[in-house]
Write a protein that binds this DNA or RNA. Structure first.
Ligand SMILES: [Mn+2]
Ligand SMILES: [Mn+2]
Ligand SMILES: [Zn+2]
Ligand SMILES: [Zn+2]
Lengths: 154, 154
DNA sequence: TAATTAACTTGTAATGATTCCAAATTAGAA
DNA sequence: TTCTAATTTGGAATCATTACAAGTTAATTA
């Protein structure tokens, strides 16, 4: 995917959601859509400091909160004390390393089906009117397994 | 379950985990084991102020962190800004109200199986050595549906 | 039972992520 | 181009959680 098409796509996305298009919003959304690093606010600020040197972190918080409200972005915690953000273009869930905090995307054929089943069962049992879910799986990432000298039993 | 049997059971639990038995730990664990209210630190402090008027909130934080390390307790966020704690006696997951923050327990026959399947698939796909998971489902609780005048389509 | 000590509790201070706020700027409508 | 409500900015305020030093205590040992 070219850089310009990311800019076009995210511009369209903002307009489709009736969000006012500011350079800050556009650049932050494009950054998230083209990186899978699950960044914190600080990471985003550093990454965009060339393009928008005067952008304050309140703007990043405001912007991300807006995106979360519109479900363009999801929030994640990996235990390091700050919130991580993730562009949610295609449905997936996360594996999070309990040692280093690394977050990776996971999905598999039929995940959307499983997810829907879970929501339906939950609605039936709890009476809640379901609007979404989060699932996370914890463990040691491959690097940390090596680093800690742990052998995975097959 | 009688009050005294909760005290006996939680005492045994602490000893099984080789945790030093202090009145604070014992009473906090007994409180969590006998309430399903998913309390915050403040809620716990208020609830136990009669029995332990001098207990500081740092002690509650320390104690809960210890219990989380030993997997006796899990942490939950409901979006109100503070962490909620839950005695994890039997496997279950949570439905969380996006309007009022109410957290309810959910389980169903075969949940443990589904959970295991998810962990196995995740291990295979990601290479992580899995140690646990969290799943949460979001929506409007029955009370908030009424309060907000929303009709659930069948 | 008494002595010993590492572990725990307490109260307060420090931290740090996030939100709040007032003033300046700006996107989009007319 | 004009107008204005929405947004951005930067700095202060908030508040949940952690850090720390001093006092206390659970459990071990003799
Ligand atoms: Mn992701
Ligand atoms: Mn629960
Ligand atoms: Zn790792
Ligand atoms: Zn509710």
């Amino acid at each position: 995917m070219t850089n310009s098409s990311v800019m076009e796509d995210t511009l369209k996305l903002l307009k489709d959601h009736k969000l006012r298009v500011t350079p800050q919003r556009h650049i932050i959304l494009a950054y998230l859509a083209s990186h899978h690093n699950h960044p914190t606010v600080e990471t985003i600020r550093d990454a965009l400091s060339k393009e928008l040197p005067n952008m304050g972190s309140s703007t990043i918080y405001n912007t991300l909160n807006t995106f979360v409200d519109h479900r363009l972005v999801v929030e994640l915690q990996n235990g390091d004390g700050s919130t991580h953000y993730d562009y949610f273009g295609t449905p997936h869930y996360h594996a999070i390393c309990t040692n280093c905090g690394k977050i990776v995307d996971v999905t598999y054929p039929g995940f959307d089906k499983d997810e829907k089943t879970l929501e339906e069962k939950t609605a039936e049992i709890s009476g809640y009117m379901i609007s979404g879910n989060h699932m996370e799986v914890y463990g040691l990432c491959p690097e940390c397994q090596v680093k800690l000298g742990i052998t995975q039993k097959k």
